[in-house]
Write a protein that binds this DNA or RNA. Structure first.
Length: 599
RNA sequence: GCGCCGGUAGUCCAGUCGGUCAGGACGCCAGCCUUCCACGCUGGAGGCCCCGGUUCGAGUCCGGGUCGGCGCACCA
């Protein structure tokens, strides 16, 4: 369906709409309506079940605001802080630091101050890459993609709204590792809002300034932990490797099972494992596998933290006729491919950075099976000598001695030892160094875990699920449009109607609706207009089943399925169980052992 | 942020040259009627994106803003 059709339906039927419309709306912010919020809940619950509960991981809930040092360590402060210069002639915006790097010998221009960058542009007579106009004298503007705020009164403690939920997990790693009893591997999930002050929000809820991420950070020991590939070995992956994308006509997908992808070295084993988990999940919530692929990041596209990355992508807005072509091997025209998940092998990037920048230890101590005995050269400098002799340099000299002992124990065979500190040479008698070679028992080592991260954009998944669910067909010579949402995620699960509002049928229907609600189902009651109109209404919001009371005294009701519009008769007493089974996927409508209803 | 195009009930649209042109359809609400697939009857509520300007008079013309679509840039 076209994007405008989807946006229109979403607004009309309460899925999502632009926020604060009464005040003219604000770009990049959306509100999920009564249907959409429930659909979102259902998809999030399903994600928890697949990526968390069934994998044995645990969820945390960290703040959305974090202090500045967190983002200094994570690298977001630098990489988010773009310097833009605008061409006075053609209006194009360019990264000022990139211009300088490309046209001078300067590297790392990102760390240069704005006035200096402006001077460099003027001094080198840099020109607009688009039209060639001179850029000297044009102001360089700073654009930070993180929302900034102040923590507490005053501006002495800047904070930022998190641009990804992941950092909330990484910064708490020491405490989380303690919870996990310092045993690798373990996984922590988080689902919540993240914020990016996008320059240009686009395409409805696909690119917004506030969005929901569902992330798993799986911490592993890179030297010995392996995924349990068997769990997903046979899952078929539609892969779109980097090399295929770079080909002239790079449209061929490679279909491999998880096992094959790992065996052939095409995908990192941990990433491949989660591609398998992910594919099962997308399929279960109604993403059309004919409009789905895993695309490998091109080397220049990799994030600052990623060692390898595959995106799950879905094609949305594709024409109906194309969707019905089930060959599946060729990408189709007409739709846009959007990223719905990033599967990144983040190595130890994040933990190393936080280990370096913070006061805490972001490693895990791994005990050896057998303690190792190692011979180690150590020093124990006589500080009562070094202090009076060398004054303030004494501490640095002691450190230098320790470093020298590890590097070159032969140096201690002389009577006098010389070390260099800040360009100065210091010489002292060997006996004052306390040098010795000892046998030490090592019981283990500190390991910096690596991180495997499936990072799901919930809003984009919702958009995809709605886009792929939209169907039209012919019923009684009339065109009908409906959302073929999976029963497991549909926000309204069953509509309950009286065939006509008289003879007590409406009261009976209300009772049934109440009973089904008591069973935990999402139920809507409707007695307005004609029965056909009510069916169509529910079809369009994607309600998979409708129950109609057609005789107050009868002990059965009709149960209608949305996609086929077929009906069966079901005893009222059995309804809760039948519907619960349908919702859980224990049985399909076609498999129900029930007589067809006459219409 | 730049360029092009656009903004009229909940939704989709009509609205001429500036002058009873604010209209249609669907949807919604109320009543009636109705025994299985949105188009039975009657009645009703609801709108010119915002601010300013031109004019005797602005939905209509102009400027700015805002929101949206597309393209460029950006998307760590």
């Amino acid at each position: 369906m076209s994007s405008s059709d989807l946006v229109e339906l979403a607004k009309r039927r309460g899925y999502f709409f632009q926020s604060a419309g009464a005040y003219g709306g604000v770009s990049g912010f959306y509100t999920y309506g009564p249907q959409g919020a429930t659909l979102k809940d259902n998809i999030e619950d399903s994600w928890r079940d697949r990526f968390q509960r069934r994998e044995g991981h645990r969820e945390i809930d960290a703040p959305t605001v974090m202090p500045e040092p967190v983002f200094e360590a994570s690298g977001h402060l630098d990489t988010f802080d773009d310097m833009l210069v605008e061409c006075p002639e053609c209006g194009a915006s360019h990264r000022a630091d990139h211009l300088v790097e490309d046209n001078t010998d300067i590297e790392e221009a990102e760390s240069i101050s704005i006035p200096d960058i402006e001077d460099l542009i003027a001094d080198h007579d840099l020109q607009c890459p688009s039209c060639g106009a001179a850029l000297g004298g044009e102001p360089v503007e700073e654009f930070n993609l993180m929302f900034e705020t102040n923590i507490g009164p005053g501006s002495s403690s800047p904070g930022y709204l998190r641009p990804e939920t992941a950092q909330g997990i990484f910064v708490e790693f020491p405490q989380l590792a303690e919870y996990a009893r310092n045993q690798l591997p373990f996984g922590i999930t988080q689902i919540g809002k993240a914020y990016r002050n996008e320059i240009s929000p686009r395409k409805s809820i696909v690119r917004v300034r506030e969005f929901t991420q569902a992330e798993l950070e799986h911490f592993i020991d890179p030297t010995e932990d392996e995924p349990d590939i068997d769990r997903v070995a046979d899952v078929e992956l539609p892969l779109y490797p980097a090399e295929k994308q770079e080909e002239e006509d790079g449209t061929e997908y490679v279909h491999k099972t998880v096992q094959e992808a790992v065996d052939e070295g095409l995908v990192h084993e941990w990433v491949a494992y989660y591609l398998g988990v992910g594919k099962q999940w997308y399929e279960s919530i109604g993403v059309d596998m004919d409009r789905f692929r895993f695309r490998q990041h091109l080397s220049g596209e990799l994030a600052h933290y990623a060692a390898d990355c595959w995106d799950a992508e879905a094609e949305v807005g594709a024409a109906r006729s194309a969707a019905e072509d089930s060959s599946g091997d060729e990408p189709r025209d007409g739709g846009d491919w959007i990223e719905i998940t990033g599967y990144a092998y983040r190595s130890d990037y994040d933990l190393s950075k936080h280990d370096e920048y913070s006061d805490d230890d972001f490693t895990v101590f791994k005990q050896y099976d057998e303690p190792k005995v190692v011979e180690r050269a150590t020093v124990d400098p006589d500080m009562s000598y070094l202090g009076p002799e060398f004054g303030g340099a004494a501490g640095d000299i002691a450190d230098a001695l320790e470093e020298l002992a590890e590097r070159d124990r032969a140096a201690f065979e002389d009577d006098e030892i010389t070390v260099e500190v800040d360009g100065e040479e210091y010489t002292l008698p060997a006996e004052k160094t306390g040098f010795s070679v000892e046998e030490q028992k090592e019981t283990g080592e500190h390991v910096m875990p690596h991180v495997v991260e499936p990072s799901i954009g919930i809003d984009r998944v919702i958009y995809t699920v709605l886009d792929h669910a939209y169907e039209t067909d012919e019923v009684e010579d009339e065109t009908r449009s409906y959302l073929a949402l999976e029963p497991g995620v549909a926000p309204t699960f069953v509509g309950v109607f009286p065939l006509v509002s008289k003879d007590g049928m409406d009261d009976r229907a209300r009772e049934i609706a109440d009973d089904l609600r008591a069973e935990g189902l999402d139920v809507t009651y409707d007695d307005s207009g004609s029965i056909g109109r009510r069916y169509r209404r529910q079809d369009e919001v994607g309600t998979p089943f409708c129950v109609t009371v057609d005789d107050e005294t009868a002990e059965t009701v009709t149960l209608r399925e949305r996609d086929s519009t077929e009906q069966v008769r079901v005893p009222i007493d059995d309804l809760p169980e039948v519907l619960a089974d349908l919702r859980e996927g224990e049985v399909t409508f076609a498999e129900l052992d029930a007589p067809k209803a006459e219409q």
